[in-house]
Design a protein around this nucleic acid. Structure first.
Lengths: 104, 104
DNA sequence: CTTAATTATGTCATATCAGACATAATTGCA
DNA sequence: TGCAATTATGTCTGATATGACATAATTAAG
């Protein structure tokens, strides 16, 4: 956050807090969330590159449109396993997956 | 497999078959298995570097010794989510995890 | 060998994740 | 604007992963 904005908020009696602090997340919990977010973004990118609708992708991986939507929305009911399986089905390589995970 | 060995087997009427063929695995299923294997090996390495017993690690991550053993034995009941969470608890970074996944 | 510590294996009850369905919201185009 | 396609959201039931426990197997040190 730009220090100007921070100064304004704190001058008004507000406290500036990170999302991790607000949700009381440990660093590892934060990392997991970021990893899942990176994978879900990557999934959406691969699907769109392949010009597939969520419905078509769902058919390919024996799933449902709603679950694909949840994957891309980073819904907590979606596992990393499922994200990775779906990415592989879209033609992503292990390197692609590794790149998504390592990206800050 | 060295072609000499292959020749011997085939000369004897045997058929040489890959593990993937034998288990009838798709390439994506193979990749998932390899990713899990890489992560479980990495977990064992990190734990040993930290000089932790399976029991100690289990305490740190609110799990049990038996589950840690299963993680390191690449047991099918273990999710990639759990492997990654455990690695992060051991101090592994996203880069460490990405490296394990991309390694052939 | 004996013993203690560590690791491996099998099972179970509970928790979490899965696909499926209905339906709402959004988008894109004529 | 209207309409069709796509995407988002909520919920259900069955499937899978979870920690916990018991206990077997292995390893290490005396």
């Amino acid at each position: 956050m730009e220090s100007i904005k921070r100064q304004r908020i704190e001058a008004a009696g507000g406290k500036v807090v990170t999302i991790a602090e607000f949700l009381d997340l440990s660093p590892e919990e934060m990392e997991i969330i970021e990893i899942r977010l990176a994978l879900s973004k990557s999934l959406k990118k691969f699907r769109q590159q392949e010009q597939l609708s969520q419905r078509k992708l769902a058919e390919n991986i024996n799933s449902s449109q709603s679950r694909v939507a949840k994957m891309e929305a980073n819904d907590p009911s979606v596992s990393i396993d499922l994200l990775i399986k779906s990415l592989l089905s879209l033609g992503a390589t292990r390197e692609d997956i590794a790149a998504a995970i390592s990206r800050k």
